[in-house]
Design a protein around this nucleic acid. Structure first.
Length: 495
RNA sequence: GCAGGUGUGAUCUAGUUGGUUAGGAUUAAAGCCUUCCAAGCUUUCAGCCCGGGUUCGAAUCCCGGCACCUGCACCA
């Protein structure tokens, strides 16, 4: 199964390793002709859905390179760096701070490299595996450093997450957008992490794409801005910490999550929205979707509440993280207020508020992979059952055979549909082969011009999910196309 | 980063006690045929991960690198 998705991803132009012809570098991927557009469609669907949650949510596009000071304030310069010590014999690398903490039961996070070496010597620590002494401690920073300017004196980094760009822009947007909360800033863009050993395909990349919505809000009033009644009677797939090892997840009522499990109401409302996005827009089967609660130990200290969004992926062997919902409190703005000296507190109706952040963070590459993993089936041949809004081609138009009577009609239909949609028009080989090709890249509808239809101005339209066909009038095609693509009409409802 | 395994056209693969022009299937392209689901026939394009070494001769053996897979470690 894994091989199938991977091989199809390559063969049909979705995604593969970057710089292949030079032997490639781990952790970097290129999107091809089908993949790039599929990714764009996912991003568009995501943007439409989440920007639509509130009229005060906006798409912004901050720079990828950030000055050191900003990442110092965010904590990345210090915390995104691990001090490592390596065994001189078996080369097992361990986190130096954790090693010392275990031995002394005292925090060792702030020790310098020299102090670490001194402490290790003092405590007589050696490799736990082979008892050989450690080499000197060194730091490993997961951020890519760049030298800016001709002398390279301005230290900077490729951003390790898109979120920071939103935080840096908060104050200005609050002014521009007329001082209202909640304010949502959306970033869809690249982030960079120098992973030690990236593996598992697009699941861990060194250059990745994030789609994030940072909601700046007043925790005391935020819930009043939301239509909380939407949660009435609704259940959310959740695996709480104490359910681990026993069950993958359990549908739990929103009300219960709020009252019994003490989650903020606004948090649960957003869980519901995210679940709706995955189940309705992306069409993930309900039993393959869950929220995964992070334990206090697992989550970052500034996250007051943290669930990952996980999808059960056959290619990755189970439930895997594709997004996260983090209630970060006022950590980020407070840090940047301290770091920059710029006041982040805002004044609302005479009340001074340091906005809190609710972060919706999605890994785009993982989500695109999820589309392939979930929607690729092996029914007839490979069939990618994409929701129509995500498909690279919305329609394909074929003459039943390469005959002079049929070809021009097919071409004119294709031209007509191309005004609004991406359309593939193909006349080569057998009709079955052309259908199969469209099945593999997830084109939802194939329109075929045949001899019967020439006489009465009709064509057949084929639904990729079922391979079922209907005969429709050419003159109705535009209306049919619109309703199929907008989701206002289903294929099964066609006469 | 460590240990083990693997690397052959676009994809999947045959071929390694060293020995002819590295074989097949699928895909792709062109054509013939064909009145609806990868049909058939003909033709064409295209490959030994990269670099070095041993040898009369290397896809095959050795060394180095890169990548992938599994386990360990790492994943603020």
């Amino acid at each position: 199964m894994t091989a199938d998705v991977q091989s199809l991803a390559k063969r049909r132009g979705f995604i593969w390793q970057s710089a292949e012809i030079y032997g490639a570098m781990a952790g970097f991927y290129d999107y091809g002709a089908m993949g790039a557009i599929l990714k764009r469609r996912w991003e568009d669907a995501w943007l439409k859905y989440f920007m639509g949650l509130n009229e005060n949510y906006y798409l912004i596009d901050p720079a990828n390179i950030m000055p050191e000071a900003a990442l110092k304030a965010s904590g990345h310069v210090d915390s995104f760096t691990d001090p490592l010590v390596e065994c001189s014999k078996c080369h097992t690398a361990v986190r130096a701070d954790q090693l010392i903490e275990e031995a002394t039961e005292q925090p060792a996070e702030d020790l310098s490299l020299e102090q670490i070496d001194a402490r290790i010597a003092e405590l007589g620590l050696a490799c736990q595996k082979c008892k050989a002494p450690f080499q000197k401690a060194r730091t490993f920073n997961m951020m890519f450093q760049v030298d800016v300017g001709p002398t390279g004196q301005d230290k900077a980094y490729l951003r390790p997450e898109t979120a920071q760009g939103a935080y840096l822009n908060f104050k200005r947007h609050f002014e521009i957008m007329r001082r209202k909360l909640p304010l949502g800033l959306i970033v869809i863009g690249k982030a960079y992490r120098n992973e030690i050993a990236p593996r598992q395909g697009v699941y861990r990349m060194r250059e990745l794409i994030q789609a994030e919505l940072q909601i700046f809000m007043d925790p005391e009033t935020f819930a009043t801005e939301l239509n909380l009644t939407e949660m009435d009677g609704k259940e959310i797939n959740v695996q709480l910490v104490d359910m681990r090892g026993r069950e993958d997840f359990k549908p739990i009522h929103c009300k219960e999550l709020i009252e019994k499990h003490c989650l903020p109401d606004f948090y649960v409302w957003h869980m519901l929205k995210i679940q709706e996005f995955y189940l309705k827009v992306i069409r993930i089967p309900k039993e393959k979707f869950r929220f995964y609660e992070k334990s206090e130990k697992e989550r970052a200290f500034y996250n007051k509440v943290h669930f990952d969004i996980e999808v059960n992926l056959a290619t990755l062997g189970g439930f895997r993280e594709v997004a996260g919902l983090h209630y970060r409190g006022d950590y980020d703005l407070t840090r940047h207020e301290k770091g920059s000296g710029e006041k982040m507190e805002v004044s609302l109706d005479g009340k001074r508020v340091m906005p809190h952040v609710l972060e919706l963070s999605f890994g785009v590459d993982r989500n695109v992979w999820t589309l392939l993993d979930i929607h690729l089936t092996e029914e007839r041949t490979g069939v990618l059952k994409l929701p129509p809004v995500l498909a690279p081609y919305a329609f394909a138009v074929f003459p039943l055979m390469k005959k002079d009577e049929l070809v021009p009609v097919a071409e004119s239909i294709a031209t007509m549909l191309r005004r609004d949609y991406q359309v593939c028009c193909d006349q080569s080989g057998s009709i079955g082969k052309r259908y199969a090709r469209m099945d593999e890249i997830g084109t939802p509808f194939c329109i075929t011009v045949d001899f019967d239809g020439l006489a009465d101005g009709t064509v057949t339209i084929r639904d990729t999910d079922t391979a079922g066909q209907k005969r429709v009038k050419v003159s109705d095609l535009q209306d049919i196309a619109r309703s199929l693509m907008a989701g206002t009409g289903a294929f099964g409802d066609l006469q």
